[in-house]
Amino acid sequence: MGATVAGSKGFVGEICGLPGGEAILTCVQCGTCTGACPNADRMDYTPSQIIAMVRAGLKEEVLASRAIWYCLSCYLCTVRCPRGVSQTRLMHALGYLAMKEGLASRQTATPAMYRVFSHYARAGSLPELWFMLRFYLKTNPLRALHLIPVAWGLLRRGRLSLRTRRLSPAARKQLDSILQKAIAIRGKE
């Protein structure tokens, strides 16, 4: 989808072919992204290291890393990068690839959360209560217990609704056919 770059093969080529991935070629490994990242200290590989690893062709390690799931999408790296690399977009692209290849890290619950989120998003609307419940049931139901004070605070003020927003049947059908078509298009590739 992105630019195909002459001379870059394998994993680098694959990343360059994703929208937002082509920028890795011009990275000078200055580490500004890592320095700017509010979360870099907890990553298994720093953001700039991820780029270096992609360029070294370390596909499995990159896609199985925790780092790509620790991106907060705050774009601070992108704003400060002196080379115009959008590290945020790259992390998203890598996340998608990791999911597609079945390599998404199991050391973090983020991929699971993303899957549950996307399940509801694709249905047209996100019911926060059901989304949270489903996520905790799928990952670690016990974790939900310690959230009781938070949930209570929200519930008391009418901020956790049992009602779900529903699209009109026609809109729902329209959305479904668009998404079905998208799956069909993707399947052809």
């Binding site: 993303y114 998003a121 699209l167």
Partner: peptide, 12 residues
């Protein structure tokens, strides 16, 4: 409909 937010992009 839901805009998809950041998470959906990583799934689909």
């Amino acid at each position: 409909n839901c805009c998809g937010s950041t998470p959906t992009g990583s799934v689909d």
